[in-house]
Write a protein that binds this DNA or RNA. Structure first.
Length: 553
RNA sequence: UGGCCUAUGGUGUAACUGGCAACACGUCUGAUUUUGGUUCAGAAGAGUCUAGGUUCGAGCCCUAGUAGGCCAACCA
């Protein structure tokens, strides 16, 4: 019997091999954000990877803040990062760690390296060292301070810690190899002086470990079995391993994978920050932002994001993922979950001339054809209703290509009756002002005698019961597919139509009780989410994504 | 320029690690449909960057080349 086992990605293959060969009994991974900004879709990929792997193999995934640069890090980011991970549905239980928790240990390890003659205090200013450091093609030359005695190094390093020196006056360097073709092995900095308060340790320290000094050691302290990071850290791996070896500590293993690139999207903290600060978007949680909070507000669901992460997989080659994959993931999820309702973006009044002026009939509407448990609701039908302006054409093409309204054309009003357009009124500017129609009493939804078949079905809203709503139509933020290939300023590629606000839309009365966060499908239009700006008497919907549209041919 | 990494339909990933390339998205057909949605059935589309080599046999191994990515921050 063949079971179609889903194929494994290269990391899963490595893990299963490690497990089989007894190198590890379980998986301990970690998600290590630096609390200096907000999480985005790229982080989501990493979160799903790290937590997902731990889940799959019955292991654990820690949350560890990589907070070794007090100049950039803040507590507010810590909170938002935790919120985002929780929203995605992952739980780090009590394993919330901080690299700064390990500062004491890290300091001891630094002195251990000094004692082994593997680290030294260097007085050379940054630019001076960089000058003698050489280039990838040309070896560097040693700093004049490279051969200081262990005692002197130990003394100087302790003086650094005590605050005897100014920022930048001295650094602690690993003593490795000035001629290595890997620049990270040319006596990399382990500790630097920063008289800056840290968001967690306050003013306890004025020297801080660098990423290289802190990251692998933190992994080791937490007994991380598989330390996953993005490709650009590949060149750090020899240093990662050098430190573990020379410190003789638990050998966590670093494995790199390709970061996410999304079409029509920019995913870098720097660029996203610029968009916010220059006001191109309304904050980090603007629904157009690829930040987790932005996507949440837009209407993406955790399930969709996880499904997305799952489908794109993980590999070691840099590519460009089509946003269509993300959009497909939300549609798939929302199709099952979102109730259908009627909303008219650009209302066009239709007067049903043979319907009594004061009559209201309550009709039954199905909430979600994909989910019978979602039940039904009642919607009022009256003489005057709204359909969308886009659903009428004065001179429509043949009925085979145009299923909607036109002079003498018939359509079904969903859950109601079939109507025939008997006339229309034009405004002076040529626009269509209102439509006149006649309904066929024998075509009531559910009780249709079946003598009539129409191809088109329209959504509608009773004019007397309609609720006004603001609809925010979001579209991609950029017009260029591959934003990582552009050479000019990325802001030149902004999509001027990434947000179109429709302030005079009408929606069906059942939406009166809509709450922030509710997600619906406006039939034939797309999926929408009630925005946090929404109030009791001013409903605001964000368009998450349009419906798939096959009307090309 | 020195080194490291990568190279499979339009896009993202597979190929039990040598046995004539699969899945998803997208595209196109048709059916169903009281959403031009969903669902269903089907199609087109790569011979695996190039050139050698090893082998009975290579997308998987070797060599060279080409292309792309990464590295010369007291950022992570």
């Amino acid at each position: 019997m063949e079971e179609n086992k889903k194929s494994l990605n290269f990391i899963e293959q490595m893990i299963e091999k490690d497990l089989e060969e007894g190198r590890h009994k379980t998986v301990v991974s970690r998600f290590p954000p630096e609390p200096n900004g907000y999480l985005h879709i790229g982080h989501a990929k990493s979160i799903c990877l790290n937590f997902g792997l731990a889940e799959k193999y019955g292991g654990k995934c820690n949350l560890r803040f990589d907070d070794t640069d007090p100049e950039k890090e803040e507590t507010k980011y810590v909170e938002s990062i935790k919120d985002n991970i929780r929203w995605l549905g992952f739980d780090w239980e009590d394993r919330e760690y901080y690299a700064s928790d390990y500062f004491d240990q890290l300091y001891i390890w630094a002195t251990d390296l000094i004692k082994k003659g593997k680290a030294y205090v260097d007085d050379l200013p940054a630019d001076a060292f960089n000058k003698i450091k050489g280039t990838p093609a040309r070896p560097g030359t040693p700093s004049p301070y490279r051969e200081r005695s262990v005692e002197e190094n130990l003394y100087l390093f302790s003086r650094m810690k005590e605050g005897a020196f100014e920022d930048g006056e001295k650094v602690l360097r690993a003593k490795i190899d000035l001629s290595s073709p890997n620049m990270h092995m040319r006596d990399p900095i382990l500790y630097r002086i920063k008289h800056t308060a840290h968001h967690r340790t306050g003013s306890k320290w004025c020297i801080y470990p660098t990423y290289d000094m802190a990251h692998g050691q933190s992994d080791s302290i937490e007994s991380i079995t598989h330390s996953l990071c993005t490709l650009e850290f590949e060149v750090h791996r020899p240093l990662y391993e050098w430190l573990i070896e020379n410190l003789e500590i638990y050998p966590s293993k670093q494995t790199e994978f390709a970061r996410l690139n999304l079409s029509y999207t920019v995913v870098s903290k720097r660029s996203l920050r610029e968009l916010v600060e220059l006001g191109h978007v309304n904050g980090w949680d603007d629904p157009r932002m690829p930040t987790i909070s932005g996507m949440k507000r837009r209407g993406f669901t955790p399930e969709a994001v996880k499904k997305f992460a799952d489908t794109i997989g993980v590999a070691r080659r840099n590519g460009l993922t089509d946003v269509a994959v993300l959009e497909h993931a939300v549609r798939e999820d929302l199709n099952k979950k979102a109730n259908r309702v009627f909303g008219i973006m650009n209302p066009l009044k239709v007067i049903i001339t043979n319907w009594p002026e004061d009559k209201t009939e309550m009709l039954t509407a199905i909430n979600n054809p994909e989910d019978p448990a979602a039940g039904t609701r009642k919607i009022p039908f009256t003489q005057e209703i709204y359909v969308d302006q886009g659903d009428f054409m004065e001179n429509p093409p043949s009925p085979g290509k145009w299923f909607r309204l036109g002079p003498d054309r018939e359509v079904r009003l969903k859950f109601a009756y079939i109507i025939k357009c008997t006339g229309y009124k034009k405004a002076e500017d040529g626009s269509i002002e209102e439509l006149y129609a006649e309904y066929d009493p024998e075509t009531k939804s559910g009780q249709d005698t079946g003598r009539k078949k129409v191809k088109g079905t329209l959504g509608w809203v009773s004019a007397s019961y309609a609720i006004n709503a603001e609809i925010r139509m979001y579209d991609r933020l950029f017009t260029t597919e591959n934003m990582s290939a552009i050479k000019d300023d990325f802001k030149n590629h902004l999509n001027p139509d990434s947000l179109k606000i429709i302030s005079n839309a009408v929606v069906e009365p059942s939406l009166k009780k809509a709450k922030v966060g509710d997600q619906v499908q406006f039939e034939r239009i797309g999926y929408f989410r009630v925005d946090e700006d929404s109030t009791q008497d001013h409903l605001i919907f964000n368009r998450t994504v349009t419906l798939r549209d096959n009307r090309n041919k």
